[in-house]
Simulated assay, not measured.
Amino acid sequence: MHGSRRLLRRLDAVDACITINRTVADTFRFYRDFTNMPRFLGDVMAVEQIGPETSRWTIQGPLGMHIRWTVRLTEERANELIRYETVAATGLSTCWEVFFRPGPEAGQTEVREVMTTPFGRLGRTGLALIGKPPADEVQSNLQRLKELLEEGKVTYDRHAVAGKFPA
């Protein structure tokens, strides 16, 4: 059953990949500190650490609504993988897997993010209809992570709360 559940997650997932001009250790360390998330995620406004493996995220949703999620770290392998998910009823969690590996050149990191949303394709379609297409958001978030780590600031504002990242 566990193996078939993982296969279903893969079929229902969206993913994106980017190469960042920073070492794997630096990139992993920055990403693993979830309090950094508001600095590059388009709709995450605040993250508060509430336990060793849990944090509370404030998301700005459609029409300016603020939504709070509890997020739990489910797996971590230093400089390789961070897996986390929203705390929700079984089958209703959004799950992220972020993989880190050396890039094609010395000092580079390839970051691959896989996001699984509730209700698979139907859930992704629903999010797209309210202006939050998961595949585009994942890629945009990685682009902002790259900007922040390479340039020290974010200007890329595609799929982000209006005005969050000044040009």
Rank of each mutant, 00 (worst) to 15 (best):
T19C: 07
N21T: 08
N21A: 15
V24N: 08
V24K: 06
T27L: 02
T27V: 04
T27R: 01
R29F: 01
R29S: 14
F30I: 03
Y31V: 14
Y31A: 09
Y31E: 01
R32I: 00
R32V: 00
F34A: 13
M37Y: 06
P38Y: 02
F40C: 02
L41Y: 01
D43K: 04
D43W: 06
D43F: 11
D43P: 00
M45Y: 00
M45L: 14
A46W: 01
V47S: 05
I50Q: 01
I50D: 04
G51R: 05
G51N: 05
G51F: 04
P52S: 10
P52E: 12
E53S: 13
S55M: 10
I59K: 05
Q60E: 15
L63R: 14
L63E: 13
L63W: 12
L63I: 03
L63S: 12
H66I: 02
I67S: 01
W69T: 02
W69N: 13
T70Q: 12
R77A: 11
R77D: 08
A78H: 10
N79A: 10
E80Y: 04
R83P: 00
E85S: 15
E85N: 11
V87F: 02
V87D: 06
V87P: 02
A88S: 15
T90H: 09
G91S: 08
W96N: 12
W96S: 12
F100I: 06
F100G: 05
R101F: 01
P102R: 13
A106R: 12
Q108E: 15
Q108N: 08
T109L: 07
E110S: 07
V111S: 06
R112I: 11
E113T: 14
V114I: 15
M115W: 00
T117V: 15
F119Q: 07
R121C: 05
G123E: 06
T125L: 15
T125P: 00
T125F: 13
L127F: 14
A128H: 00
G131P: 03
P133G: 09
P133M: 10
P134Q: 08
A135I: 13
D136C: 10
Q139F: 10
